[in-house]
Computed example of a mutant assay.
Amino acid sequence: MKPIIAALTTAALLVLLLQTACSTDNVPNQPLAKQIDIERFMGTWYVHGHSPTFMDKQAYSATETYELSDNGKIQTTYRFRNGGLDGKYKTYRPVGRIHDTENNAEWRMKFFGFINAPYYILYVDSNYQTSVVGHPGKEMAWIMSRSPEIDEELYIRLKAELESRDYELSNFRRIPHS
């Protein structure tokens, strides 16, 4: 039974990514961060809020780590505990590339070696301690910080950034960290 579920969830992700990948080489449909210092953006970010997918709908203690390779690719590690703070770790490793090198805020993330999905850096504070990432369809978003803890007022302010852009947040989920 598990192989069937895995196949179905993989197929669902592929459909979602293909839907967005087909029309994503155009100009972004929303304002992006003005200028991203790519070296400062690299490193580990704690994911505090997200639009869950079938892969991470029960994510806890989630982190996203970016490393810029010599070839310009962004090696990404998305890691979280599945189902609870003591759940088994799951790890995904999409590879990113900067799509718009003028401001470095528009990336493409390659999943499963062949699907390119857009990744928009919508906001990053001047100290590179908090960020908001989105997607052209406005159905997927992430709130991240450099710390496993985030002030409630700050979290609400970052979520308001998504609301002001008309993101679909009915399923947006706060991610607990241990």
Results as ranks from 00 to 15, higher is better:
Lys88Glu: 14
Phe112Gly: 15
Ser164Glu: 07
Leu162Pro: 06
Ser145Asp: 01
Ala7Gly: 01
Trp45Met: 01
Ile5His: 07
Ile5Glu: 12
Asp100Thr: 06
Phe111Ser: 03
Leu162Met: 03
Thr9Val: 10
Ser170Glu: 10
Asn127Arg: 07
Ser51Trp: 05
Thr91Tyr: 01
Phe41Ile: 05
Tyr120Ala: 06
Gln19Tyr: 08
Phe41Gly: 05
Ser126Cys: 04
Met140Tyr: 14
Ser126His: 08
Tyr66Lys: 02
Ile38Asp: 07
Tyr66Met: 02
Ala117Thr: 14
Lys88Asn: 14
Ser170Asn: 12
Glu163Leu: 11
Arg79Cys: 05
Met55Phe: 11
Trp107Thr: 01
Ala12Asp: 09
Val47Glu: 07
Tyr119Asp: 08
Lys73Phe: 08
Pro28Arg: 09
Arg165Tyr: 04
Asn104Asp: 02
Leu158Lys: 05
Phe41Arg: 04
Asn82His: 15
Ile36Val: 04
Ala62Lys: 06
Pro52Lys: 02
Ala62Glu: 08
Pro52Trp: 02
Gln58Glu: 11
Lys34Thr: 08
Thr63Ala: 01
Trp107His: 02
Asn26Met: 15
Pro176Ser: 12
Leu154Asn: 05
Tyr60Ser: 08
Asn82Arg: 15
Tyr89Asn: 08
Gly84Cys: 09
Met109Lys: 01
Asp37Gln: 07
Glu161Ala: 02
Phe80Ser: 03
Thr65Val: 01
Ile175Asn: 09
Glu161Ile: 12
Asp56Arg: 03
Phe172Met: 10
Ser69Phe: 12
Pro94Gly: 03
Lys159His: 15
Asp70Met: 06
Tyr119Met: 04
Leu68Glu: 06
Arg93Asp: 15
Lys2Asp: 13
Gly49Gln: 11
Glu64Trp: 08
Lys138Asp: 04
Leu16Asp: 15
Lys88Thr: 12
Leu13Trp: 10
Phe41His: 08
Val15Glu: 11
Asp125Gly: 11
Leu14Ser: 12
Ile115Lys: 06
Tyr46Trp: 09
Thr20Gln: 15
Gly84Thr: 08
Tyr119Leu: 06
Arg93His: 15
Asp86Glu: 15
Ala141Asp: 05
Asp25Val: 00
Lys73Ser: 10
Ala12Trp: 13
